[in-house]
Structures are given as structure tokens and as C-alpha cells.
Amino acid sequence: MNIERIQQRILDAEKLQIIGNNSQLKSTASNTLDMSPYAGFIGYHPDELVMTVKAGTRITEIKSILEHKGQILPFTVQHNDSATIGGAYSIGSPELRDAVLGVKVIDGQGQILTFGGQVMKNVAGYDVSRLLVGSKGRLVAVCEISFRVLPKAYANTVKTTITPNIDSQSQVRERIEYGLKKVFDPKGIFI
């Protein structure tokens, strides 16, 4: 599967439900956009502590590649063996968000967009790659993710418990989140 295929699916669709490995979502919808075939490693530079992967790559696979170089993920994903990094990103956690450096996504109008990069420090433009952590497949299809990794020696700094989310809905927040949904998916195709 290549990125143009995903783009075409989005351009052709009226409604789409994005799935990773469907491991938690358990979607039974017929019009799914299955991201799991879009998998594989794009770049890994252990001495820069940066990895870039396609969104369908499984967490277990990422962990085993890191293991070979004595490195670890700086966040914990509550997952079964089939969970993908794209799914984990789209569900989100504060620690995963901390580790994200950049993303390539396709928005609801089929535009391929890149935000952030492969560097630790980058304050050009709004931090969209961290904003979209937690977007639950409703704003964009996440295609590629760059994130920071850690040497094994720092395992004790990685939180192993899942941080409970605060449900902080307010009218202002709702309005902003709705506005942002419209920015990325004006036609409302991602359900």
C-alpha cells in the first residue's frame, strides 16, 4: 500500500472510519480505511534518538527493533500484540505526545501535510504534530510518525502506568475542538 492509495480512498469517500488493527475499536463498519497495511520503518538513527515509521507498524515490532540497539519507547501503550503506532497516536497519552516530533497526515480533503520533523527542537509553525495526538481518527489519517526514543538505561524514567485522562469538557473547549475538526475535515468524512 502506498500513500497515494490512501489519498485516493479519502478523495473518493463520503464517509470513512479509520482503523489501525481494529484491536480496540472493533469496528464493524463497512466503509473502513484500514491503515495497518501501511507499515514499515522509514528511518531509525539510534545516535539521534529518533525513529520514523509508517502508522500501521505494530508497537511490538517497533519495540523489538529498538531492543536490538539497546533502546526503548519513552511511553507505555496499553495494547495487545496487534496495536499499531497510528492507533496509539490517535488514542493518545501525555507521554506519547511528549515523544512525538513530527507527522505526515492526510486531511479530510485528501491533502498530504507534514508537520514537525525529525529533530528534537522545532518551533516553526503551530505544534500540529502534538495537537493531533488524541484525534481518534476523526481529523486526519496519520501516515507517518517520527518520535523520540530513549536508551534502555533510562527505563526507570518511563511511566508504566496509563495516565487517567481528565475529562475537562467546557463550552469553550468544545467550540475549539469542533472548529479544529472543521479545519482538518471540513466535509466530515472521518466518522
Binding site: 502534538r130 484525534s135 485522562n165 481528565i166 475537562s168 475549539i176
Partner: peptide, 26 residues
């Protein structure tokens, strides 16, 4: 405070989009 003068509280652990991260560097 938003331009409407409304207060918005953003927390690291908020569910949903990363609005706190968005404000950093805005």
C-alpha cells in the same frame, strides 16, 4: 483567556486533542 475574554484551562492529561501542546510555541 481567549479573545472573547473567556477562561480556558488546559491540562497535560486532558482527553482529546493536545490543546496545551498547541499553546506552547503559539
Amino acid at each position: 483567556l481567549t479573545i472573547d475574554g473567556e477562561e480556558l484551562i488546559l491540562h497535560r492529561n486532558d482527553s482529546g486533542l493536545g490543546l496545551l501542546a498547541l499553546m506552547n510555541g503559539s
